[in-house]
Design a protein around this nucleic acid. Structure first.
Length: 353
DNA sequence: AAGAAACACAACCGCATGCCA
DNA sequence: TTGGCATGCGGTTGTGTTTCT
């Protein structure tokens, strides 16, 4: 696969953008849309490569991006999501409306990483430094191995889920419902759930009360623009789809938490039961998929063995109130509270029961 | 006041991936 | 199926600004 040659052309300007260039780019996109980025620069009268224009637009000029200082809540969200997702900046950005992945990445590297280091946490593992570095302890090695295996399985399964969920959806629509025209849904579909918050429902449903000091409200405050967010959300979306798809073509509202617990307690059984019943001729196909997906069951079961891993993400709920230090005026108590709210669950309770 | 060091962030680089002819 | 193109993404670099000595 050849690389784009646009950046290798000679005579194109590089480096910081001038005000005039910004205005040209902005004016052109407002009038025509960006279209093909590669074709844009000459049309807009810019001596830049298309890639540079795209970057300037997506990271700076786009009208729907928020600039300026990160709020306390945004900081907390980034830290929590980073603990879950690692350096997947675009996935993290999709949960922070109006922030670009580049901005979040920079903020992490210049501020948050240092904050974690300063309080003795490893910015990669989000665990106390000695956990990450002192691998002489058999228990530590076991934990790290377990995490590595878990992550490996998760990534592998994620790839499969994405393709399989599509297949299941196709099977469902081609067999469980009559041919077109599609019957109308008897009940309106539930409002789209912010994908990044799927994991929260599990933690709330499975372990009931939110953590002390955290006020849970609703989850409407996050951007839902990026549907393909994360492995976690894609996995849960898959499960949600499976469990919500009833053979009679009616979309039922389910308690997501109880569904996923049912799924864990009886891997595949509930979904397969529903789909293969009623003489679904493609049941064998679905069952095959589910057999293939038993790994998912293991993963979710792992989550349930590590409830503390998920507990920490309750703070992601929009409107959740987490007391934190005011900038430049940080009392020690508030600092402790701030970090406890963010970090305690995943740093102090990770050890396998 | 001047130079050095540290910091912050915009921009670049190059690989990965999806789409399409 | 293959190859070219466009775009997404994460790591890295460059440059302007601020703080320190």
């Amino acid at each position: 696969m050849g690389r784009s040659a646009c950046c290798e052309k000679v005579g194109l300007k590089k480096g910081p953008w001038t005000r005039e260039e910004d205005e040209k780019l902005l004016a052109y996109i407002q009038q025509h849309g960006h279209g093909s980025w590669r074709a844009l620069p000459p049309k807009a009268g810019l001596q830049r490569c298309g890639k540079s224009c795209r970057l300037r637009w997506t990271n700076y000029l786009r009208p729907d991006i928020k600039r300026g200082k990160f709020s306390l809540q945004e900081e907390q969200t980034i830290i929590q999501l980073h603990a879950l997702l690692g350096n997947r900046w675009s996935a993290i950005a999709s949960c922070l409306s109006k922030r670009t992945d580049n901005e979040i990445k920079n903020y992490w590297n210049t501020h948050l990483k240092k904050k974690l280091i300063k309080i003795g946490l490893d910015p990669i593992t989000h665990k106390p430094k000695y956990h990450a570095l002192d691998c002489n302890q058999p228990k530590d090695i076991a934990n790290l191995n377990h995490m590595a295996q878990w992550e490996s399985a998760r990534l592998e399964a994620e790839a499969r889920i994405i393709s399989e969920s599509k297949l299941i959806s196709d099977v469902y629509h081609s067999t469980a419902t009559p041919p077109p025209p599609r019957p109308p849904l008897l009940a309106p579909p539930p409002p789209p759930r912010p994908s990044c918050l799927d994991v929260l429902k599990v933690s709330q449903g499975a372990w009931g009360t939110p953590r002390k000091g955290v006020t849970i409200t609703n989850s409407n405050g996050f951007s839902t623009t990026n549907a393909a967010l994360t492995s976690v959300s894609s996995m849960l979306k898959f499960s949600d789809t499976m469990l919500s798809a009833s053979i009679d073509g009616v979309i039922h509202e389910h308690s997501f938490a109880s569904d996923i617990i049912n799924y864990v307690e009886s891997p595949g059984a509930c979904a397969i039961g529903r789909i293969t019943s009623e003489n679904n001729q493609d049941g064998y196909q679905v069952k095959g998929i589910m057999d293939n997906s038993l790994q998912i069951h293991d993963m979710v079961a792992d989550w349930l063995r590590f409830p503390s891993f998920l507990e920490g993400f309750t703070d992601l709920q929009s409107g959740s109130v987490v007391t934190g230090p005011a900038d430049n005026a940080v009392s020690e108590d508030n600092t402790n509270s701030y970090w406890n709210n963010i970090l305690l669950p995943s740093t102090h309770k990770w050890i396998r029961p």
